[in-house]
Every structure is written in structure tokens, then in C-alpha cells.
Write a protein that binds this DNA or RNA. Structure first.
Lengths: 205, 205
DNA sequence: CTGTGTGAAGCTTTTCACAGCG
DNA sequence: CGCTGTGAAAAGCTTCACACAG
């Protein structure tokens, strides 16, 4: 299976293709060409063919791609053909919205624990879970072999939380706090910062 | 003022530099070198110097950059040295979290109206605002000269909402729905999709 | 014919390395 | 000296264009 040779920018486009294929499948479409998939995802047909070619030959010449087959292949490549366990740190407005976000469970991304350092919140129920104190973070992560964490705490606390997560053996972090995390390079970090997104949009207005 | 010649990838890095500079300023640091700024933001020193050079010469040879001055320049370039008015469409868990998100107002990004199509939600208070019905969308946007909208509705409704926003004269959209929006190319779209972010992380695990 | 898969070409972005300024 | 600003080189990514398969 090709790994290191695949550009990261290609991997980041695969979820978009997957999402489009899921929708086509729901509509009952059976076959799709790179040109059609391109129109729906906003990419060029050539780019889609090239991206897919990093992982194998999934299409049929003269015909296109079988939607369900390509969907399954992308799920396998992205490893989303199985269930993942996730912890959320921070039970503020954002943490609560994340726990209730239906698209996560729908895609096999299961939030199985929530943590907060506010004693007033610890013990309260949240979407079928109980908010746990930070001191239980490492034990919970290790006992349940959790690999992915979502950071939803205020910016000042983000790096400290990230350090704790690293110590607990987490290998992937989705960071919602507007802060650049300094972590070992073997930990994968993705950043979601609405302020940064808006600030690079206002440049063009 | 340079515009079209500046690569988009450069513009998208500026908010990260700005964020780091704000923190340095809060700590009382007065001067910073490209190497130091690089360490904090995770970029190379050369890249930072090159990025900044698209907009002018902000540093002093042998010394570095004056933190406050560079911060002000970046704010001016990104046009975040003024206040922006924003509408949020969708008053679910995510929309509510966005309305309460303190980093927005702190950075001059003011949510001034919230809309939802659920009659059970319309009229309810939310963070100092009243949830408005969708039929008031266009009037509100036009009367208050709003340029930026945040879409926080379920995936199936996203494209329809985007079309309404385009009709109402919106020029920038931040889309939280897991859907690729088809919009006129004169409308700037940024996508935030936690599922997609996680799905490209699981590839590497 | 239609539409994939893919080398090669073309373009963009990053890194290098150093002149030159304070 | 130390560190910026920047051409030039290197690396990376996208598009082109066509052989080839169904």
C-alpha cells in the first residue's frame, strides 16, 4: 500500500470525493466519470484521475467509475471503513456542539468521553456521556486505546492540554483552539480556526 | 497595493503570523526575528520573510521585526483593522456555539443576526439576538450591508441556503456543512468540515 | 467512440544562499 | 556582526495530451 509517496494535499482531497460519492450513491447513481465528479467537487477531471491513480486503478476505460466500488475503496484507503474512538477536551459551547454533531457518529467517528477542568461541569451529563475531570484523561485514553482527541478549550489552555494528550499516548489531534500547537512530529495535528478562515477571506473583500 | 499577484496560500498563512504576534505583544515582546516567528508558527524562517515580502519591507536588517508594527501591518493587509458584520444561518447546536464564540467579537467579527427555518426556534433569544425567520434573510443582509455569512445548517440544506445568500448579495461564505457549494466565482467560500479533517488524519494512523 | 491512466510539460511554491544594510 | 529581502535553484503540484482499453 503506497504511503509516504502520496502527497498530503492529495489525501486531504479524498474526503471531498468520498462525500460526493456518498451523495451520488444515496441518489441511486451507479457510474460516474472523472468529469462529472469534478463538476460536483470543484476539481478538474485530470486532477481526480491523477489523485486516484496514486492508490490503484479503480475505473474502467470508456465507462468511468462504479460509484459504490470507488466509495468503498476510498473508505478503505482513508481507513474510515471501521469505527474510531475519540475524546473531546473542553465542555464549553463548542465541546457540547461537537458531542451532539450527528455527522461524526454517522461516519464512524464516535466521541466516547468528554473532559473539562471546571469542577462545576464535571459529573454533568452531556449527550449520553458524563463530563469527566482532567485527572482521568490519561487512564481513560490508555484503557480504551483511544488514538484521536479533539481540543475545544480556550486558546491559553490549548498547549497544556496538547502536552497532556501527547503524554497519554494520543497520535492524532484536531485542534479548534486558535493556537499553533508544538507537538512531536509523530503526532498528526489538524487545525480548525474559524477566525483564521474569516481573516483570510476579508483580505479579498 | 498588491492583490492578484499574491498567492492564496500566502494569504492563508498571514492569520497564523498575526495570531502569534498578538500573543507576543501580550507578553510584552518588542522585537522578533523571522527565525523566532518561525519556531512559534511552525514555518521556516525563509518562508516567513518571503511571505511578508509580497506586501512590503517590514523588518530591519540585523534586527528583526518590531512586533507591534508588524501586527498592525498584517491587520491592515488582511483588512481586520476594522469591524465586520456577519450573519449566521442555522441555530442548531453549532450555530449557537458560533454565536457565543468569544474569539469572533474579540477580533472584530461581529455576528449581528441569526436565522433558522424552524418556526419553533424563530423568535427565541440567542446571545443577545433574536432568531429570525429565513424570509427576513435578504432584507436584513441588504439593509445592514452585510458581506459575510456563516452556514451552519444540515448538509442537505446547505446549497439552498448558499443560493439564497448569493441572491441577497453576500460576497463571502464560511461553510460548516459537509457539502461542496456551487457558487459564482466572485463569492469567496471557505470550508470547515471536521469530518473531512478527521478522515484525512485517519489515513496516517 | 468514450473516458481512464500516465508520462511529460508547465506552473506554483518552497528552500537556498548571499548581497547588503543597520 | 546579525538578520532582512530576494534572485536563483530545487521541489512539488497541476494540467496537458495521448496511448490504450472496453
Amino acid at each position: 500500500m503506497p504511503r509516504s509517496e502520496v502527497p498530503d494535499v492529495v489525501v486531504r482531497r479524498l474526503p471531498t470525493y468520498l462525500m460526493a460519492l456518498e451523495r451520488m450513491l444515496a441518489r441511486g447513481e451507479e457510474v460516474v466519470s472523472s468529469a462529472e465528479l469534478g463538476k460536483v467537487t470543484g476539481m478538474s477531471a485530470a486532477q481526480i484521475r491523477k489523485d486516484l491513480s496514486y492508490f490503484g486503478e479503480f475505473g474502467r476505460q470508456g465507462l468511468g467509475y462504479e460509484v459504490e466500488f470507488l466509495r468503498d475503496q476510498l473508505k478503505r484507503i482513508l481507513q474510515v471503513d471501521r469505527e474510531w474512538h475519540i475524546v473531546v477536551v473542553g465542555a464549553g459551547a463548542l465541546g457540547r456542539a461537537l458531542v451532539h454533531y450527528r455527522e461524526f457518529t454517522r461516519r464512524g467517528l464516535n466521541i466516547v468521553a468528554v473532559f473539562d477542568n471546571d469542577p462545576g461541569k464535571v459529573g454533568l451529563p452531556l449527550g449520553g456521556l458524563i463530563i469527566q475531570p482532567m485527572c482521568e484523561l490519561e487512564t481513560t485514553i490508555r484503557r480504551r486505546h483511544i488514538e484521536i482527541a479533539i481540543i475545544a478549550v480556550p486558546p491559553d489552555a490549548a498547549q497544556a492540554v496538547a502536552d497532556e494528550l501527547a503524554l497519554a499516548g494520543i497520535t492524532a489531534v484536531l485542534n479548534y483552539a486558535p493556537a499553533t500547537l508544538r507537538l512531536d512530529s509523530d503526532i498528526h495535528v489538524a487545525q480548525i480556526d474559524p477566525v483564521a478562515s474569516l481573516q483570510s477571506i476579508t483580505y479579498y473583500l
